[in-house]
Design a protein around this nucleic acid. Structure first.
Lengths: 321, 321
DNA sequence: TTGTATGCGTTATCAC
DNA sequence: GTGATAACGCATACAA
């Protein structure tokens, strides 16, 4: 017991004893065992992070924000990658819970539509904060951008600044919040400007380059009524895939088809025709999510809230500017 | 005890009892406590990963490889970012050790030159595998590319394929293996072709864009004897920074100055003048490192080895091709 | 100021 | 087939 007190620098230990203990600990190469400490304190000072896709550059940047905040508050991070598979996400969350992480930061994967799993763990007392891909009305806070509004804005940019009227959308999966919201924003913009929605021109992709490529090919091969004069992609990787398809069809950007994305991927400004997009502040999103989670963990009365980080339009030349 | 046996599906439990236990566990929302399990088993099934810079796209890709292997072998990952600060790296490693991770995967940061810390933890029984930035002769395995040879090859490409003779090097910090090795490879190439080494044309950068930019500015402002006709950068981010500096000086690539990198960053093929570089298979490096570490953890007789993953030259147009 | 007993949740060991 | 006991390393509560 005295050893424990000395090592934790409590004041009711004789200074000499303290020194003796410390010297001995040092010479033994003693390292405190947080596993044992956690067992009694019921706290691990550990956060579980579940991301859907570690290669999409957006997420590492979010993780960096999370890491920075966690570091300052002395939390360690368990990182898990669900690879866009809900089964794997679920497994990860279960493992993380059995590791007794103090809280969970989750960006959900795209292969599910049933939120009961999340509900049950939240009811079971898990502290959860969602980020980017949110799940609402489920008793957990969420940090994201205003996807719907941002999507509307960038679509309106195409309409008002350039006069495009034949605008297609390469959407995300409708099971995921950002997929649904961004499609909705696109529709809002059309409606606000009295443009008719052509359902044929809403093609579902997922979130990666190859799915953008495939969706664009599909769109171009609809043929008959010609191709759209502008495309709103659900995110930058999808836009990048689509650009490849457009080029392969011998069309040029932005003259034949303008295109815009969402995210502001690290590559977007470097393309031959730099991509106009919505910049999502990934690092800041990570910071906010981590701060909120730590707040929920450490303060009983923390409230559930939806935190929005502001986006900005990055106007580059792919929209015709 | 019977409960424990039932939950772990041991065979010396009555089938009916097993069922009863399981039903009850289920209905209670019971989750096994790995913390307690770890305390007795002295195993956490946990790996600590220490990377120097989470934003350099190379590392997330390595982490993905690590994650994939860890997942298959049922290990969880603690991710820490040292931000190129040795102090922070040391702190991270100490925390990880007190978390009782079963092993450590480390890519060391650039602000130190004293390996005694690593030595002491390895002597203290920690299982360590280094990756990318290695520390040798210290009793730990290491997974990396053959930096020296690869650097020599790409430098020789400039010499033999294009006839450049005035070749500069934007080097990495000499305290870090890859900084030293790549400089050495550059020198080897010059020597092999009887080109004189101009020490003035070896400028030290670090590993990020801004340091490449600064180093290139320095190089261009040496003025007097004109500028080099080719530059070998220690990695792609440094090359990308340097390219900006070259452009600002009104010079064109590759006509005025050719440039090559190392890494094959996700951006490199997308630049207006796509960057010739050495492709390092990041994902595979992560896989190999994780496999080796798990091997060291689970097999007493695992040997210390230096594992090299092969590189390939990515010839694009920045070298004049 | 120091020390003893106890318990965190789990499992190995040894009864019954 | 089941159960009691002890131990993993630490810290709280309570003596001495």
């Amino acid at each position: 017991m005295t050893v424990s007190r000395a090592l934790n620098d409590r004041d009711n230990v004789d200074e000499k004893t303290k020194q003796r203990v410390r010297n001995k600990a040092e010479s033994m190469g003693y390292t405190p065992n947080r596993v044992a400490k956690s067992l009694v304190s019921r706290k691990t000072h550990t956060l579980g992070v579940v991301i859907p896709e570690i290669t999409h550059a957006f997420f590492p940047e979010v993780v960096r924000g999370i890491e920075e905040v966690a570091y300052k508050s002395d939390y360690q991070l368990f990182l898990t990658n669900a690879n866009e598979l809900f089964s794997r996400e679920k497994e990860a969350i279960e493992t993380l819970r059995s590791q007794r992480v103090d809280g969970l930061l989750i960006s959900s994967s795209l292969t599910h539509e049933d939120y009961s799993f999340y509900e049950s763990i939240i009811e079971g007392g898990a502290k959860v904060v969602f980020f980017d891909r949110c799940i609402e009305d489920i008793g957990a806070s969420c940090v994201s951008v205003n996807d719907r509004e941002s999507s509307q804005k960038i679509t309106e940019h195409l309409i008002t600044e350039h006069g495009y009227t034949q605008i297609a959308h390469l959407s995300g999966p409708q099971k995921v919040s950002i997929g649904k919201e961004r499609l909705q924003g696109y529709k809002d913009a059309l409606e606000a400007h009295n443009l008719e929605l052509n359902e044929e021109w809403v093609i579902q992709a997922e979130f990666k380059e190859d799915t953008g490529y495939d969706a664009m090919i599909k769109l171009l091969e609809k043929g008959r009524e010609g191709h759209p004069d502008a495309v709103v992609a659900v995110n930058d990787p999808v836009a990048i895939g689509a650009i490849e398809a457009i080029k392969e069809h011998g069309l040029t950007i932005p003259d034949d088809i303008a295109i815009v994305g969402f995210t502001d991927d690290i590559r977007s400004s470097l393309l031959d025709v730099p991509l106009t997009t919505v910049r999502q502040p990934a690092y800041e999103m990570g910071e906010q999510a981590a701060e909120k989670l730590i707040n929920v963990i450490e303060d009983e009365d923390a409230t559930v809230e939806k935190i929005e980080v502001p986006t900005t339009l990055k106007i580059r030349s792919s929209c015709g500017c």
